[in-house]
């Protein structure tokens, strides 16, 4: 995230307008109608409601049986949840129009988080790791 801002004081003017546009407090917003501004949020909100219903509904279908593969319900359920999370992130948290200096560290965070999951899983599926649980 560091390299693109090498000339801090010099680039001040170049960036100042972009910054204005993103600071939502300015009076530019006073002109549009309230409904116009919040419409995307309402749409996303409704989509989240719909997908909540979808995810509950899907859980009643036995996908393991349909696809003949283990853990399909888990995969489908998590895919829907991930989609919902992306909606929240992109619109509610404004990540779709956020600065690079916000989302580049976030990408690293997700990468490390994924690393934690994947490497733990790798360790789990490594042969020596799979010890059987004895039932008392």
């Amino acid at each position: 995230m560091a390299e693109q801002h090498t000339h801090a004081p010099e680039s001040k003017d170049g960036h100042v307008h972009a910054a204005e546009a993103h600071s939502h407090g300015s009076d530019a917003h006073g002109h549009g109608s309230y409904l116009h501004h919040v419409r995307p949020y309402l749409i996303v909100g409704v989509a989240l409601f719909v997908f909540t219903v979808v995810t509950v509904g899907l859980s009643y279908v036995d996908f393991d049986h349909i696809f003949g593969s283990h853990g399909m319900n888990m995969k489908i359920g998590l895919a829907v949840a991930t989609f919902k999370v992306c909606l929240v992130g992109a619109w509610f948290m404004h990540l779709k129009s956020e600065k690079r200096s916000i989302w580049i560290p976030l990408l690293f965070t997700f990468f490390f988080c994924l690393g934690l999951f994947v490497l733990c899983l790798l360790a789990y599926f490594n042969p020596i790791m799979t010890t059987g649980h004895t039932h008392h």
């Binding site: 859980s59 359920g77 998590l78 509610f92």
Partner: peptide, 17 residues
């Protein structure tokens, strides 16, 4: 929103799947 976002994962993994 983060709190909401976490719940979006928590709900299916405990209630549904």
């Amino acid at each position: 929103h983060l709190v909401d976002l976490i719940w979006i994962f928590v709900f299916p993994i405990f209630y549904l799947l």
